[in-house]
Amino acid sequence: MNKLIIVEDIMQEHDVKGYFEILRESVIRSRLTMTAVFFKLASSPQGTDIERNQVNPQISAFLTSKIRKTDLLFQLADGVHWGIFFLQSSEVEAKAFLKRIFAILKREREYQQIALKASITEIRNNSVNFETLLDKNKQTLANDEQPIWSIEQVTDYRVQPMEQVKVSIIEQNAIFRKVLETTFTHLDIPHFTLDVATYDDGYSFLQSETYKTGHMHLVIMNDILPRKNGLEILHILREMPNEKKFIIYMMSERNSEGATLNAYEGGVDEFIVKPFNLRLLEAKIRRTFARFWL
């Protein structure tokens, strides 16, 4: 029996595992989606290894010409499956890609020997390992009832993990501080859990050192505070190397253009003039976090 030719100018299965593990963890850190697409060469009853040896390089060359520079194409060890990791792409985009290349393959005479079927796996968490991902998609594509040129979906890894967010409320008025604490303790934000802490002045917040953790951190504070005021805290947080983890809402009783300008130039994400509607604050917070998952 003739041995299947493995094309040498694309990555092979054994080379890809390490890359996949890095990409999988980056999905969690960056909150972006990765989608895996797998193809199977659909063998006809009369198909031989020799025929596939002739077709394999053609398929590899065709796929290479259609992917982006950021996509990772590889061939599986069995010689009849290919995979592509699409970075920062959803299953909707991957499906559109598949429909486009399938149309080309069916239309162009030079590809008349090629018949494929495909599966799509959208990855939004790190609960899958490389071997399991391959096995699930190969099992899906092994279904003889799946027609040629069809696209199946593996949906096991689409659920996004919950991410913990530190919430620090810095407010000297005890009653309003308690109102804000209650509001945020009961605030339901998809994909996030809120760990709420309160402080009556800026100094106690800095002494707590909770802002030094690696978690995303929502800070809601007054511009004027005892001991360390809000603008001082803002400067300290924005000078930190990982300052982008902070979402900073500043509250103020000063409804002036100068106060607003100073706050935004200092790096606040939102400037809210007191008194304000709590429902409006909740809506702003929900919108802020929704942007992380668009």
Rank of each mutant, 00 (worst) to 15 (best):
I169L: 13
F97V: 03
E108K: 14
W82R: 00
A142Q: 11
K138V: 10
E108M: 08
A96S: 12
L76C: 12
L98W: 02
M162F: 10
P147D: 06
N137T: 07
F85W: 04
F102Q: 07
D144S: 10
V154Q: 03
S119W: 08
L105W: 04
A94R: 01
R158G: 02
K69T: 13
I101N: 03
R109V: 12
Q75W: 03
G79T: 04
A77H: 13
I169C: 00
S127K: 14
L134K: 08
D78N: 08
W82V: 03
R158L: 12
S90R: 03
K106E: 14
N137M: 15
S119R: 05
E110W: 09
H81Y: 06
E93N: 11
S150Q: 05
I169W: 03
E122L: 11
K69V: 05
S150C: 05
R158E: 08
Y157H: 05
A103C: 10
Q146M: 15
I104F: 05
K166S: 14
L141W: 06
H81R: 04
V165T: 10
Q113Y: 12
Q160E: 11
A115K: 14
F85L: 01
V167W: 00
R109Y: 12
Q139Y: 14
L116N: 06
N125R: 11
I114L: 14
Q164L: 15
T70R: 06
Y157G: 00
L133H: 01
T140N: 08
L76F: 09
Q153N: 09
L116I: 09
T155W: 10
D78Y: 05
A115G: 12
R107W: 09
T155K: 13
F85Y: 04
R124V: 07
Q153M: 11
L105C: 09
F97E: 00
N126K: 15
A77N: 13
I114F: 06
G83V: 01
I101L: 06
F102L: 07
R158H: 06
D71P: 01
